[in-house]
């Protein structure tokens, strides 16, 4: 076992991203899909930090802070939407939300 290389981080990040994507595609519950989206976002963050660390540049890490901030805002909005949706429809299943469907 040596110290982890850039490759390790990237593979981990790729795996996380794939897990998140699979979750978005497979799961039916909007809340879970939402969490999976967060996983994908963080997978991207991870690769950014890894690149930043291994190329000795801070810019990537600065970008990650921004991503985290924006993600927090987005989660606040998204969760608020989800809660009010649940209050109205008593469900968070993607298939059952059909009001705008033709």
């Amino acid at each position: 076992m040596g110290t982890p290389t850039l490759g390790h981080y990237l593979v981990l990040s790729g795996l996380l991203f794939a897990i998140g994507l699979a979750g978005v595609i497979v799961r039916r519950d909007l809340l879970i899909m939402y969490m999976c989206l967060e996983i994908m976002l963080n997978a991207a963050n991870l690769s950014l930090v890894a690149f930043s660390r291994f190329s000795h540049q801070v810019r990537g890490q600065v970008l990650v802070f921004f991503v985290i901030t924006v993600a927090a805002v987005e989660v606040a909005v998204g969760l608020a939407l989800l809660v009010s949706l649940y209050r109205m429809k008593r469900t968070t299943k993607a298939e059952e939300i059909t009001a705008l469907k033709f």
């Binding site: 994507l21 978005v24 595609i25 497979v26 799961r27 039916r28 899909m33 993607a94 298939e95 059909t98 469907k101 033709f102």
Partner: peptide
Amino acid sequence: AGNLREYAFLFA
């Protein structure tokens, strides 16, 4: 068809 997950899949 309005299937959210299908869109996500196709998008990916």
